[in-house]
Design a protein around this nucleic acid. Sequence first.
DNA 1: GATGAATGAGCCTTCATTCAT
DNA 2: GATGAATGAAGGCTCATTCAT
Lengths: 211, 211, 211, 211
Amino acid sequence: MDAATPRKAGRDVRRAQLIDATIAVLARKGYAALTVADVAKEAGLSAGIVIFHFTSKDELLAAVLHALATEYHRHWAGRVRQAGPSAAEQLKALLLSDFDISVFTPERLAAWIAFWGETQGRPVYDQICSGLDAERQAASEILCRELVVEGGYALDPHLLMRTLEALCDGLWLGLAARGAGNSDRVTASDAHKIIMAALAALFPRHFAPGA
Amino acid sequence: MDAATPRKAGRDVRRAQLIDATIAVLARKGYAALTVADVAKEAGLSAGIVIFHFTSKDELLAAVLHALATEYHRHWAGRVRQAGPSAAEQLKALLLSDFDISVFTPERLAAWIAFWGETQGRPVYDQICSGLDAERQAASEILCRELVVEGGYALDPHLLMRTLEALCDGLWLGLAARGAGNSDRVTASDAHKIIMAALAALFPRHFAPGA
Amino acid sequence: MDAATPRKAGRDVRRAQLIDATIAVLARKGYAALTVADVAKEAGLSAGIVIFHFTSKDELLAAVLHALATEYHRHWAGRVRQAGPSAAEQLKALLLSDFDISVFTPERLAAWIAFWGETQGRPVYDQICSGLDAERQAASEILCRELVVEGGYALDPHLLMRTLEALCDGLWLGLAARGAGNSDRVTASDAHKIIMAALAALFPRHFAPGA
Amino acid sequence: MDAATPRKAGRDVRRAQLIDATIAVLARKGYAALTVADVAKEAGLSAGIVIFHFTSKDELLAAVLHALATEYHRHWAGRVRQAGPSAAEQLKALLLSDFDISVFTPERLAAWIAFWGETQGRPVYDQICSGLDAERQAASEILCRELVVEGGYALDPHLLMRTLEALCDGLWLGLAARGAGNSDRVTASDAHKIIMAALAALFPRHFAPGA
DNA sequence: GATGAATGAGCCTTCATTCAT
DNA sequence: GATGAATGAAGGCTCATTCAT
């Protein structure tokens, strides 16, 4: 692919390059059909070097998931940090960060989904994500709790967190769906509107409808 | 597996048996790791007979997805038909039908998710589902529109449908997640509560909170 | 090789055929250069069927060594049984049985030697042989002890056994040696003479020189 | 391995170092499992430099065998030279030199055996050894002939040489054998006793029993 | 219909060898 | 001289598929 692949490269540079190539192949062919040769070709390298850098296909895939999970975590955590001091602003930032298409390109979403499907029979994948997932859920639940307290809503913060996380997951699924002839696809813009409408419906005293 | 596998069985019976075996393997090992031999063993038969009945592994998997999609469609359509005449009752029936644990066992959910991950690079899978999916989305959107009209809500029926469908999808993902040490899992009961709370939030004039 | 290889064969027949093919390749190319494809080609079959019958290359080789060791054990034990009742006759039969060219063809000897060289780093090979080896050494030592007692020789039966076993091993090595331009090779006939001369020298009251 | 590996070393020093490393790996893993990377690691160097110094793996192994054969030759030849003037003393020196454990460590013996097993399909190895082997056999046979003439033994000097050489080879095999749980191993001390007893039996007028 | 031996394509992985630094 | 990233040729093994029985 990359005709300008330098013959030599630093260890971490090459690893990152191969991880990116894997994501691209994952998005194009899915998890089951991905081969080491595909990844190598995508990166303009040989299959041998993939094993050289990652020891095995399994470890390459684990490294890819780890990279995705870490990137995801950094992204939402950064957005929350940059948000205003109020719980409402932070929750909004947390949820909308999932639909920042400059980071979560269709390619990356497709790669994520590919891993979801393989969590069965690959407990490792769960282990890679569970810690970071738990952090996000905890952050989300804390923010929900604050809003509930502030607004006096008669809702369970834990279930609110589950609701919002499920909504985000479901929207990702919709964004990644390759509606073949389906011109009627979910877009990132839709996702934004949906998230804001859901916040307005659940926390009417914090979020104005149509904001 | 099943020691009492009858040696003779009608064509469709055997196909159904093999489809069930495939679902079981899919749930246990995931899509990528599934082999024809696994399915055969699960069904207590030989690999040859699997190919004999389905011509190829690809067609077996397509048949499985078709069976799942058809079953899914029949289930929600039946529930909507059995529901009361009001749009609110029908929408509620439609959404809650997804969490009927007698039909959507963890095994079946896991099989579904396995297919989701492979939709990339397997356009066939999209084709199998798209028609039935569209029907459901249309039904859902129509019901949302009726509620919007009845209740005078300032919400877009299309986005409401997307919201509810995404929520259901996300909850399925959560139900299927095999949180290893994660005692804090989403349950079908949680899903019911979440759906009802979401309906109450979005359509307050149709659904009482805590119903 | 065998153009008349039947398409189907009983399990044990095929295993024996593949073991023979492996011995042939071992003799021709040595242990390190042997490939599953070589064995398959030698047997006129595909590589897949080798793995099908033996699970792995390692297990194939272990099975070959096991077959060789068992055959060896049966052979000398049979010869001893057929020999006369005296310890002298039995010891003679035991030692000469190693040089029965109808069983220990150059090919088989070469295969044996190939395994000897790989016993390092393959403890399994030791385990396969050690039991049967010990039996032979015990039998040999008992016979030596009887001769020592009968003849009043001032020799240690254990060391006598070691001497005779080492001599047999060394002669096998010489028989298997492929003296390239070396027309002066050890022959089975030499081996017979050497064994008899050694017996005559060690047990002069039991074995006449030149017998 | 050796942390004190000097970065700079004369060509021959480095070659010798790599040959020693190869012998160590050969003894530990056997011939078939030996890799250039193993040798490099053992020597505390990189794989590239091994090839640089020996051009190829094959030539490295040939150099190792050559080194072993030369060392072996020098050793016995030196011992014979240092021995007394009589044929009996020289033959004794020749044979016992094989069991000088200060030179023929278990490691070196294991390396030798590893090569024996690969002589099949590697005619080069035969070529490397045949010349020096022939010299030893000639020397041994000449000494045997002298003893036969002196003692008037009714034995063929050629077969006597074969007998003694086979005995030495067989004892080496026994010394190198890694009897796992086998506490009953051949020792160098056993080998000495066996050689002396064999000489006493074959040449009673030259060697006293129990000497 | 059903089995299981057999095939062959393709994949992951190893490893000797090259080469830029 | 020395390193280590990189290659490419095999090799072992898996697995969908075929076919004689």
